[in-house]
């Protein structure tokens, strides 16, 4: 059946109420599809509407013109902030959303260097650790689709690399569709199969760029060439590009 394994996003328009009356349009004429097993990076400068787009995909924002169809199966979500319940331990936070997948918790925590944190409250974790716990929550139960908002923010290069590898491995193993928003071109080049460039105001899809993730390449110079090429073609990315980070 069409749509069973597919994400279809068609946003004709999305606007917020403006402070002095009227409407402030954020997104316009934005359409793309994604299939299970693909990793899509939504790329664009800060404030361009990436989080709004993810909220629309998740069904958290229904006040838009258009429609969204999700692949069948459950969702794994990582919000921009870790969003851990501060009164629950790490393990209880994970069990709350794990359903029947609670047995996966110790293994995933260990893979992200979080073994031994099960009984800790979130306030005892660093921001980077809390974000990794949020990724564990997203990966539990082998979701059909992962929606991740700035998943590598606040992470040191090693933790970011571990997270990227785990993400790519999980996506390939479970044929999960991953949609991640980032303002960091290097992170996107490291993991994504396609780069969806948001630009202009209101934001629209200015390019749907195929990519071979750096994790799958042996030639690191190819990543460098691709990066230069993209920066030349989409100068709006330049201001937000971070220093080179090994994926």
């Amino acid at each position: 059946m069409p749509g069973d394994d597919e994400l279809i996003v068609q946003v004709a328009g999305k606007a917020y109420a403006a402070a002095r009356g009227g409407r402030h349009e954020v997104l316009r004429d934005l359409a793309f599809t994604g299939r299970r097993g693909e990793i899509l990076a939504v790329l664009g400068p800060s404030g361009t509407g990436k989080t709004t787009l993810l909220r629309i995909i998740l069904g958290l924002d229904r006040a838009f013109e258009g429609r969204v169809t999700l692949p069948r199966g459950h969702l794994g979500v990582m919000f921009q902030e870790p969003r851990l319940l501060p009164w629950l331990s790490v393990a209880d936070n994970l069990r709350l959303t794990a359903g029947t997948a609670a047995a996966e918790i110790p293994g995933l925590l260990a893979q992200l260097g979080l073994a031994g944190t099960e009984t800790q409250y979130p306030r005892g974790l660093s921001l980077g650790m809390a974000r990794r716990v949020a990724l564990v929550r997203a990966l539990l139960g082998r979701p059909a689709m992962l929606v991740l908002d700035e998943p590598f923010a606040s992470l040191d290069p090693k933790a970011g690399g571990d997270m990227a590898r785990l993400l790519v491995r999980a996506a390939r193993r479970d044929a999960a569709l991953v949609v991640l928003a980032t303002h960091d071109l290097d992170q996107a080049l490291g993991v994504a199969d396609r780069l969806l460039m948001l630009g202009d105001r209101p934001a629209r899809l200015v390019a749907d760029w195929p990519n071979r993730p750096a994790a799958a390449r042996t030639d690191s110079s190819a990543t460098h060439d691709m990066r230069q090429n993209l920066l030349t073609r989409f100068p709006f990315l330049r201001a937000d590009v971070a220093p080179e980070v090994a994926p």
């Binding site: 998740l58 069904g59 958290l60 459950h74 969702l75 979500v77 919000f79 902030e81 969003r83 319940l85 629950l88 209880d92 709350l96 959303t97 929550r137």
Partner: peptide, 20 residues
Amino acid sequence: GFDELAAVYRVPLGPSVRRI
């Protein structure tokens, strides 16, 4: 934000009331 968390992960009503 916690309401959204419960919604996207479809946390059942009982645990949602008790734990969130």
